[in-house]
Design a binder for these strands. Structure first.
Lengths: 332, 332
DNA sequence: TTGAAAGCGCTAACAG
DNA sequence: CTGTTAGCGCTTTCAA
């Protein structure tokens, strides 16, 4: 592989001149520039990112740390991140943390050694220490959903609280008279906000009872189990707002197996807007987060930071949207 | 961040000695070794992968190029790759090629500039030129499913042909009398093999007809459409072997919407073994590929190659397995 | 068993 | 406008 030196030799100039045309830094006679470019062409020269990294402490590589790529929420997010990264000339490293703080920390260390340019955390285990550390070693980062500390963090998330209210309102609109909620792990902020939104929306109804809220694990089986619990406690429920689509699909399975008609006996509304919601029958009504946009925005903000633009260290909150489908479309 | 020089200074030795203990290369007095290690501890020194990369032309980073991470087959595969990579001290870059040869080529170039240690291609657009190029620039690689040329390629795949036969046999076993097939894009080798397996299994039955084979695109909507076509052509079909799970789920949707009972009127068997198959109701019988194992094996072989072990450039073919579920469990 | 020194490929002052 | 030179942090001969 050709190096900058080869180019310089062929073009009959010094390597600094080549470097200048490469980086468009400093003045270069347009005549020599042409020569240099010609040499570059001839040799099919491509600068080494590694050598550049050694000098610059930047590698045009960003990392995406998420809990588990197998969780159907993350592939779409990852796709968005990779799309905007590639477009901007960046490459993306991905890592699964399984929501374990130590794996997260281990990754931060490895990434530092590799002079990674920046990190997107889609995981919820970043703690205050990590943030301080990242700030200290000066690695730009963006957090999805939740920041462990307000200061110095750029956060991208969607409006979970309002989304939950939307869900409940929709269920009421389609005629539900008693609405339950299956909620996710309360260590996860999004799950908490959605639960709050539900409570806020229903607490003044006479049918309201805390036992209408059943815990789940944000996974398929959690939804299945929670639905069972719910059917025993409240056989008369006619609408369920489920904290995420994956659990909603699980709940749907349970109901179908019990021979309960969805939506006519019980309507279901999920949350997230993953493709899975459209794969099941009846298709699942959901509160869709703009998943792709969230990933794209996070990547965008991160790259802006890396390239020195001033980006507000604030929360960028995106709107969610009700997507009505068959699981709440009661027949008259 | 501390450098090797800081360690050398603190330990009172030269940087070459530090390098020796770091790499366990060459003789080092165990006394001095202890000193050096102490210094390393004190300074929390971590060697820079980038500087190492510049010298070694290896970066302990591998790349995984796949068509689209959003396709539910790939997250699990990626997870496996990342798991074994991390365990072995490697980091993984991922890229979506959308099955476009030029994107693939572009990635190869970028990766070369970054001194990536090796590449796994889970995409089917690698062509002979690419392979030759990779060989020329000496980047180790492993291909999933298919190699564009036999020589010099390490390939990991599963036995699609046998899997298809398994599927048909299973449908016959549960009593199906007329079995159709929805197949995937024939540019994709796996799709072709599965189609062959189907043909091979059914061609001698008196009910066999080429019109029982309907094309699909390996996606949800493709399965939905194909099922419609099929129901018009052959309303009397009572079993469908679908080329992949995603299309099988689509086909299932269509049948359910048409009011057809699955499995009693029509049994369905998919192929792949993705989690989606368990999310739908009835759950989908499938020919499961050992997806995780395939990813893990690919990563393993790649790392072996990178580290100079001799690995046969041959096809590593893994067995598939019938996973019977409700979609083929006819009630008696 | 250890150290000095060259070099990996590039960028960035600093002189001209 | 262009060339020289000193690193960036590490590995690897080559001597000692």
């Amino acid at each position: 592989m050709a190096t900058i030196r080869d180019v310089a030799r062929l073009a009959g100039v010094s390597i600094s001149t080549v470097s200048r045309v490469l980086n468009k830094s400093g003045y270069v006679n347009s005549e020599t520039e042409r020569e240099v470019n010609k040499a570059i062409q001839m040799l099919k020269y491509e600068p080494s990112d590694v050598a550049r990294g050694l000098t610059n402490k930047k590698t045009r590589t960003i990392a995406l740390i998420l809990p588990d790529i197998v969780n159907p929420f993350f592939p779409e997010l990852s796709r968005a991140v990779e799309d905007v990264a590639r477009t901007s000339g960046y490459t993306v490293i991905f890592g699964n943390s399984d929501g374990q703080a130590n794996k997260e920390k281990a990754y931060i260390n490895i990434l530092k050694q590799k002079y990674i340019s920046g990190i997107i955390f889609a995981s919820h285990n970043l703690n205050r220490d990590d943030v301080e550390y990242l700030q200290k070693i000066d690695i730009p980062f963006v957090v999805l959903d939740r920041a462990p500390s307000q200061e110095g963090c750029t956060v991208v998330r969607s409006n979970n609280f309002e989304g939950a209210k939307l869900a409940v309102q929709h269920l009421l609109d389609v005629g539900c008279k008693k609405i339950a909620h299956i909620y996710g792990p309360q260590e996860i902020n999004t799950a908490k906000d959605r639960l709050s939104g539900y409570e806020e929306s229903v607490k003044n109804f006479k049918w309201y009872s805390p036992t209408l809220m059943v815990p789940g694990n944000f996974k398929l089986d959690g939804g299945m189990n929670a639905a069972h619990v719910l059917m025993e406690r409240h056989p008369d429920v006619d609408g369920i707002f489920v904290g995420n689509d994956l659990m909603a699909v699980g709940a749907l399975k349970t109901l179908l197996r019990l021979g309960i008609k969805v939506p006519n006996q019980i309507a279901i509304c999920g949350f997230d807007g993953i493709h899975l919601a459209e794969a099941v029958e009846p298709e699942l009504t959901t509160i869709a987060q703009p998943i792709y946009e969230m990933g794209a925005l996070a990547a965008d903000l991160l790259i802006k930071k890396i390239e020195g633009a001033v980006v507000d260290n604030r929360i960028y909150e995106l709107e969610v949207k009700l997507v009505p489908r068959a699981s709440t479309t009661k027949e008259i």
